[in-house]
Each structure stands twice: as C-alpha cells, then as structure tokens.
Design a protein around this nucleic acid. Structure first.
Lengths: 196, 196
DNA sequence: GTCTATAATAAGATAGAC
DNA sequence: GTCTATCTTATTATAGAC
C-alpha cells in the first residue's frame, strides 16, 4: 500500500471487474485510491494505459505460471491434466484480472490490442500443442485442435465469472471437476471409439 | 426495414457487439439508423431500455427455441445431444445478440437485471435437469450439476465470441464437435469408470 | 414521427501551484 | 507526488416546432 501506482492498479482491477472499463471513470478510480483524479495522471499517462498495464501483467503472469507448471512433464495426458489445473487455479486465484483480460480488450488502442492478442495467442498455442500431440499419439480425439483448445480454455475461464471464494465449492473441487470433464471429453468415449 | 423501431434495435445490436454498450453513444445509434439522436427517444425511453429490449427478446427466444427442440424426446442422452445442438445453433445464428446477453448485463438497471437473470436461470435449469436425470440413470457422471451445466453452456456460448460465418468451419461442424466433446465429458470414460 | 436546439452533466486530460 | 482549477468535448435526455 506504500506504492500509490500499485494501489491505483489494485483499485482499478476491482472497479473494472465490478462496473466494466467504460463505466468506470477516472474519478471513481481516484476516489477509491484516496487521491484527486489529476494525481492519477502522474502515475499513468491515460486511463487506457492503466487498462493496458493490467492486461499485460495478467497475460505475462498466466503464461509464466502455465509454463512453470508443465515444465518437465513428458506424458501428454499428464501435461493436459496439469495445464487444466494450472489454468483453472490461476483464473480462480486472480479472478478479477482474468475476467477483465477476457472482456475489456475493446478498451485498448489498436497497438495495445495487438500486443495483448499476440500474448493470448501464445498462451493458447501451448494448449493446442498438447491436444495435437495427444491426437497423434492416439490418446485424444482428432477433432479440430483450435476449436478444442477454445472449448477447454473458455470452459475453465468461465469459472472466473461465477466463482465465489466463499461459495459452496473450493478451487480444488472445481479444478478436479473440470480436469475430469475435459480429459473425458478429449479421450475416446465408449460410444465413439473407432468412429471418428 | 419499414419499421424504425426494429431498425434501431438491429443497428444497436451491431454496435453493442462491436464496441460494447457503454462505448456506444446514442449518437452512434442514430447515425447508423439514419435519424437524429433525439428521434431515438420517440421509440425507446432511454438507451438502457433499448439494451433491456434486446436482452429480453434474446432470452425469450433462446428458451423457446430450446424447449421446442427437446420437446417429445424421452431418452436422456438424446435430450442432451439435442439441447447442445440447439444451444450452439441459436448462439451461432444470433451471435451478436447472444454475445451482448452474456457481456452487457451490467448496463441494466437493478429491476431489469433481475428480470434477465431470472430468465437465464430458467434456461440453465433445463440443462441442469437433464444432467441430473442422466446422473440418476447412471449414464452421466455424478459431479456437481450446476458446475457441469455452466461448463457446458459457456463452452458453447463462447463460440459466439470467435465464430465467423465466413470462417473455416460451418455451424454444423462446430455443433458436432461440441456435442461429441460434451457427451464424452458427461459419460464415464474408461479412466474413471467406477471411481467417482 | 422526425427535426433543430439546447439543457444539464460528466467525461478525459492538462496547467501550474505547492 | 499531490493538489486546485480549468479546458474541451461528449454524453444522455428534453422541449417544442413542423
């Protein structure tokens, strides 16, 4: 809390999550941070740069977290299980930022938009590679890799839109359900075995 | 196009989808509709009422479409297959409205918000009932019914955020992939059979 | 049913004092 | 590094003519 720049970011994440980026004014952010709105411009050159700063660090962190989680795992099914766990955990632990990173891209300038979309693309590629390998090894279905990756990612990401830390289920329980559902979905079920 | 009220709605759906509700001004809507912004207020009492009108008709239509699709089907697995197909098709056919219905709820007044959320709850209940029955009959996993329903719904709904009518895959192909993935996910895979 | 004109307000951002 | 004061512009919405 000693760092006002961090405090502004923290307050903004909360407000952007609750009200949305466009519905949040610089006055709102300043009020939440305990400063005047002009003071915000000392720390960030504009409201859009503040949004970009949030999205950038979120994307960098989620990718680092995923890479660290799956590093050293050779078995493809185990890679996918771990990747799903990693994705779910990060998205539930840092729920607000992730929600913003998935809903407020339209608030960015074109240049900033491109940077974030590129980062997201790299993140998705990690999942697509695992699905691809699983298909080649015959342990996963051979459906369209991109569609499957979007399906898996949005499925878990959506948790960030309804999850309540004080709710009925823990992060562990939710992660377990998703992991199971996705692995079942990716593997050949009895009904489909041999018929692709 | 003879009906200006409908044209305003049509134009607004397009703009809310592309720019978002808060980032779209009444001037933008008027410009797109070929009228002056004051004229919009003859058709809708406010910008918020216009948003509400869009969300209300979307929710009513999607529920009617689903109910009609699954009516008469007794087999639970077949019900889920049909429900998934129905959900995917409606969301891809009326992509923009559905995207708005899932992302712009914060633009509503409290009263309108409650009405829409209640409609969405009723829609989700239909899926939850099918999952529940499938669990009781032993053909689906017995995991948390709500979580599974959210997973299934957001998975398909997310299609509305990346689908391009001119893209690589047709609605039929996407629906088939999702149906397969979800049924596989809901059924006991080899790995999990007997271990719940 | 659509127009012009305008009210009332709030927005993002800057200047310059301290 | 934070303040007060202010500029400029855009916003939602209304009044009243046609």
């Amino acid at each position: 809390m000693g760092n006002m720049k961090e405090k502004i970011k923290y307050v903004s994440i909360d407000l952007f999550f609750k009200k949305g980026y466009f519905a949040t004014s610089v006055s709102d952010i300043a009020r939440g941070s305990g400063i005047q709105k002009a003071s915000m411009y000392y720390h960030y050159p504009s409201k859009e740069e503040l949004l970009f700063s949030i999205l950038k660090s979120t994307m960098d962190d989620v990718t680092a977290y995923l890479k660290n989680s799956i590093s050293g795992i050779r078995n493809v099914e185990e890679q996918m299980r771990t990747a799903v766990q990693s994705h779910v955990r990060f998205h539930l632990d840092r729920q607000k930022e992730n929600f913003i990173a998935n809903s407020e891209l339209r608030g960015l300038t074109q240049d900033h938009y491109r940077i974030i979309v590129k980062k997201r693309y790299e993140y998705e590629r990690i999942f697509q590679n695992i699905i691809q390998k699983g298909g080649e090894q015959g342990i996963f279905v051979k459906d369209d890799v991109k569609i499957l990756s979007y399906a898996i990612l949005t499925l878990c990401t959506s948790g960030a839109s309804w999850f309540k830390p004080t709710g009925r289920l823990t992060v562990d329980e939710i992660a377990a359900i998703y992991e199971k559902f996705i692995i079942n979905g990716l593997k050949q079920g009895q009904v489909w075995s041999g018929a692709t």
